[in-house]
């Protein structure tokens, strides 16, 4: 039985109370401003990055990595090459802060719909697809690690 990771669930609950688009945008921009905290370290990867880490469908050229933690969960790290990629940076911060250290089974099952819960239902389909591309890579990292841990 899986469920949404606790930190992400709390954040989604906070966003569920927001009805004002500007307030939502300001909160997401504040998160995007913290992007350096989840940016991949040079010890893990330096540009030009391997395309295997590039998020599909993301025009902001987002990349995703995962590194091991002592408790056998993962820390998720990112880079976003497009300086205008604010939405991608905001999602990277959310994923980095709420999914790192979460049970791999839960991370592997995070639904795409959280993109719309966070960014709003008015999100263009293109923008939504790019953000879901970032999530898909995070899930893939968790699934890969789960497979490696399987007896």
């Amino acid at each position: 039985m899986t469920s949404i990771p606790e930190g992400l669930a709390e954040l989604l609950a906070d966003f569920a109370t927001i009805s004002d688009r500007t307030e939502r945008a300001e909160l997401l921009i504040e998160m995007a401003d913290r992007f350096p905290e989840v940016k991949v370290a040079p010890a893990v990867a330096v540009p030009p990055y391997d395309d295997r880490h590039r998020a599909p469908a993301c025009e902001s050229e987002a990349y995703v990595w995962a590194t091991d933690r002592p408790d056998e969960t993962l820390t998720y790290r990112f880079d976003v090459l497009n300086p205008q990629g604010l939405s991608a940076k905001a999602l990277a911060v959310i994923a980095g802060e709420t999914l790192s250290g979460a049970p791999l089974e839960q991370v592997a099952a995070v639904p795409d719909d959280i993109v719309f819960q966070l960014f709003g239902r008015e999100l263009t389909m293109g923008k939504g697809a790019g953000l879901m591309g970032i999530l898909s890579l995070v899930r893939a990292e968790a699934k890969r690690r789960l497979a490696a841990q399987a007896p």
Binding site: R21, T22, A25, E26, L28, I29, A32, Q84, L86, S87, A90, F119, G120, E122, L123, T124, G126, K127
Partner: peptide, 22 residues
């Protein structure tokens, strides 16, 4: 814009936003 955060993050002085969806 397409990106819903760009205008709020910073725009040309005096510019108003027209959101294609809203």
């Amino acid at each position: 814009n397409e990106d819903p955060l760009l205008y709020t993050a910073g725009h040309i002085l005096g510019a108003v936003q027209v959101d294609w969806a809203r």
